[in-house]
Amino acid sequence: MREYGTVTAVDGIDLSLARGEFLTIFGPNGAGKTSLLALLAGALRPNCGQVWLRGETLDFGEVEWRHRIGVLSHQGFLYGHLSAEENLRFYGQLFGLSDLDDVVNHKLQHLGLQDRAGSLVRDLSHGMKQRLALARALLHDPDIVLLDEPYTGLDPSAAIVLQGVLSDLKDGQRTIVMVTHNLTEGLALATTAAIMNRGRFVWQGKRAEIEGDFGQFYYGVIEGEE
């Protein structure tokens, strides 16, 4: 559970995720989706409750488990005055990557950024920046990937790149949680889905259980709550 002063953002959610699972959480603005993601990322200290990772509770003071979590949000976490390569090298060093040169080159190539490696991020186009942000989030090859509205503000080409990268990530070895209010893109890769409202999961199920028009179902669930 997480409270902000008098507002309870996340309340009584019991969630367990298996390796290989891709969970998409839908919900209206202010439902607590981002707070839930921040709790999972260990960026927010819960008022009560715990986050377990492979049989161990997340300890706030520890940092080791952060090696295994990658976060991509609609903000890029990039420095405008550093080049694309310098940004990746910076984060790579913070994560203590040993084969930094290889990893950085490989990521730049993989996302079609090798020609712009030396350009300052502020000079890159919007789409390029988003690809770089994606490279940054996945640089340390995390086995848990948390995505906060990743499609927001993406141009079509970057959205296709993101879609491709996400389906590559869905290799059965990782756990992926995505938060979005875009129904089509959210459902495309999900193995499980949940609908969140007012800090609670109001519906949770397998992708296969969703039949017919998910949009109508979604609005039905949210309106039933109101």
Partner: peptide, 13 residues
């Protein structure tokens, strides 16, 4: 500027 501090806080530093 671009939430970069969040990026540092989420890294194992």
């Amino acid at each position: 500027e671009d939430g970069a501090f969040q990026g540092i806080l989420l890294s194992p530093v």
